[in-house]
């Protein structure tokens, strides 16, 4: 049994030095070392998985972006500050389930979705198409949502609908490792693939 020291003796130096030293180690050395290794192993992802077309950056594989033209598939509603899909200010509605504002917004989005896609008034719209995502930057939509938009996209591009539906199927991601997450379509990749189709 060592001799017991009084609670305070000899604590000043380790208290001060540990704060400064561990700040340098865990706050600077550690993240900088990871940055170095990441740039060697995965330079593309480390820099934001940017998508380039013709030498220009058009977005990031993992971030959503706004699409409003009928010839493109539309992403989920986004409530980021200033404009939808503002990647400098992620944001959500934070409206509770019994908030009138939420239900009114969804009702309006349902009507707009039916109008844009020429659907009857009693067609139930996939829930992801009319609710705002958590980040405001959700890159994906559900397959149900994509298939309902296929006819509109095909019409505005003068393509056979089957061709567009086939493209949706090919762009879809399934459960990761067969079990994790949900089947989905990345909207930017799907729209880029549409643009890359040879003209009819």
């Amino acid at each position: 049994m060592n001799e017991q020291k009084s609670p305070l003796r000899g604590l000043v130096r380790p208290v001060l030095v540990s704060a400064a030293f561990f700040m340098g180690l865990t706050g600077l050395a550690y993240p900088l070392a990871v940055t170095g290794i990441a740039h060697l192993l995965f330079p593309h992802q480390a820099h934001g998985s940017l998508v380039e077309r013709g030498g220009a950056v058009v977005g990031s594989e993992v971030l959503g972006q706004a699409f409003t033209a009928p010839a493109y598939f539309h992403p989920r509603p986004s409530l980021t500050a200033d404009a939808p899909y503002n990647a400098a200010a992620s944001g959500a509605s934070n409206l509770g389930p019994t908030n009138r504002k939420l239900i009114e917004a969804v009702t309006e989005r349902v009507a707009a979705y039916r109008r844009e896609n020429g659907l009857a008034d009693d067609v139930q719209v996939p829930v992801d198409a009319v609710t705002a995502s958590a980040s405001g930057l959700d890159p994906d939509i559900s397959l149900a949502n994509a298939y309902l938009q296929a006819a509109r996209v095909a019409r505005s591009r003068h393509l056979p609908e089957a061709r567009v539906r086939e493209l949706v199927g090919r762009s879809a991601a399934s459960h990761q490792f067969g079990v994790l997450g949900e089947p989905r379509v990345n909207v930017l990749q799907l729209n880029a693939a549409l643009d890359a189709l040879p003209a009819q």
């Binding site: 389930p97 039916r114 996939p126 829930v127 009319v130 995502s133 149900a144």
Partner: peptide
């Protein structure tokens, strides 16, 4: 139930996770 009354389809299907998707991300469902 209020979302369903507004016309949103919240059923669990092979092509969507359904449920209350307000404030959630599609990839996690």
């Amino acid at each position: 139930p209020a979302l369903a009354r507004a016309g949103a389809d919240q059923s669990l299907l092979a092509t969507q996770s359904g449920g209350n998707m307000e404030g959630k991300e599609v990839r996690f469902g």
